[in-house]
């Protein structure tokens, strides 16, 4: 089967999707990055290869905070930021979408779309409260599997107001509410409402939020968050089928766009799962900038260098 691969390497998860020529997602994968992006990508590709026989890869796209590193490793045709990738994926699945809410591991963003074009976007700037990592951490602290978080929040019967401005204060406020005897269900629901409030005030401030509204990113699995958004916005919030891997869906679509322009793919092939990648970083002492340079070797050969401002290192590499 002729296919396009989309790889989204985020802080928490690494997602891979396989897309056919018509743009339908035929397979997807969600693995934890666990601070080792290269291993996560290799492991992900290995699984994809095992699950899908006879893939003829026509193009590969990468996105997420690890997009550049991954782009070099796999040989990507398109390396795009996650905002563009998420918007492209949202418009592909729901063509008349006007608002995209996306909450991932360490960042949250809002994308405003009008007539099929991104007209505005915002990302959380100085605060990570309300992102997946915080929910993860709180679920772990309460000894609740993150998968049950949403269902429990839906069982809430009485509202509890949690201070959601800051993750640290939210946590102490939650503990306070626990100690005074509120039920876990009510506290979890209160937390969802606080995070939604914080998100809309910070990221969504001053933006015209019109429907259809799509909610994607790992946190969209949390039913409590969905309900809290619906209550706050007063409209239905749609969770797309591939909500947790939308970045990868977008990356695959962008790779397809690139491939349709007639360029042959730069994909190094599934053999990359067996190659040995060794990145190293050093501080260049060539000038006062003291750039942190990263060098990536594939089976002992340097295939990429970045992080330098002047091009002294990055321009040396011709293989990539």
């Amino acid at each position: 089967m002729k296919a396009y691969l989309g790889i989204d390497v985020g802080s928490v998860s690494t997602n891979i999707t396989v897309m056919d020529e018509a743009g339908a997602v035929t397979d997807s994968l969600y693995v934890r990055t666990q601070g080792r992006p290269i291993l996560a990508v290799q492991e992900g590709l290995r699984q994809i290869y095992r699950q899908n026989s006879g893939l003829a890869v026509q193009g590969v796209g990468t996105t997420g905070s690890g997009r550049h590193l991954t782009g070099v490793i796999v040989g990507a045709d398109s390396v795009k930021n996650e905002i563009t990738a998420h918007a492209v994926a949202a418009m592909h699945l729901v063509p008349d979408v006007q608002t995209v809410l996306e909450i991932g591991g360490q960042d949250s963003k809002i994308i405003i779309i009008r007539n099929g074009v991104v007209t505005d976007f915002a990302m959380n700037t100085v605060c990570a409260a309300g992102t997946g990592s915080f929910l993860d951490q709180q679920a772990a602290r309460l000894n609740i599997p993150i998968e049950q978080f949403g269902d429990l929040a839906l069982e809430s019967t009485a509202p509890v107001r949690i201070a959601g401005r800051c993750a640290v204060f939210a946590e102490s406020d939650m503990i306070h509410k626990q100690q005074t005897g509120h039920s876990i269900q009510d506290i979890l629901n209160g937390l969802c409402q606080a995070l939604v409030r914080n998100y809309l005030n910070n990221v969504g401030k001053g933006k015209p939020l019109a429907g259809p509204v799509l909610f994607q990113g790992g946190v969209a699995a949390n039913k409590g968050m969905k309900r809290a958004f619906e209550e706050a916005l007063g409209c239905e919030v749609i969770i797309p089928a591939h909500y947790s891997v939308m970045g990868a869906v977008g990356a695959a679509l962008l790779a397809r766009e690139e491939a349709l322009s007639g360029k042959p793919t730069a994909f190094r092939g599934f053999d990359v799962v067996n190659s040995e990648y060794t990145p190293r970083s050093f501080e260049c002492s060539g000038c006062a900038n003291l750039c942190e340079v990263i060098e990536l070797k594939m089976d002992g050969i340097v295939i990429g260098c970045w992080g330098d401002r002047c091009g002294k290192w990055s321009n040396q590499v011709t293989v990539a």
């Binding site: 905070s65 795009k80 930021n81 996650e82 905002i83 563009t84 074009v117 991104v118 990302m123």
Partner: peptide, 15 residues
């Protein structure tokens, strides 16, 4: 974070 914002902004302007 800066690169992501700049890239996305430039994409938006191109579109």
């Amino acid at each position: 974070g800066l690169m992501t914002r700049l890239e996305a902004f430039v994409d938006l302007l191109h579109y």
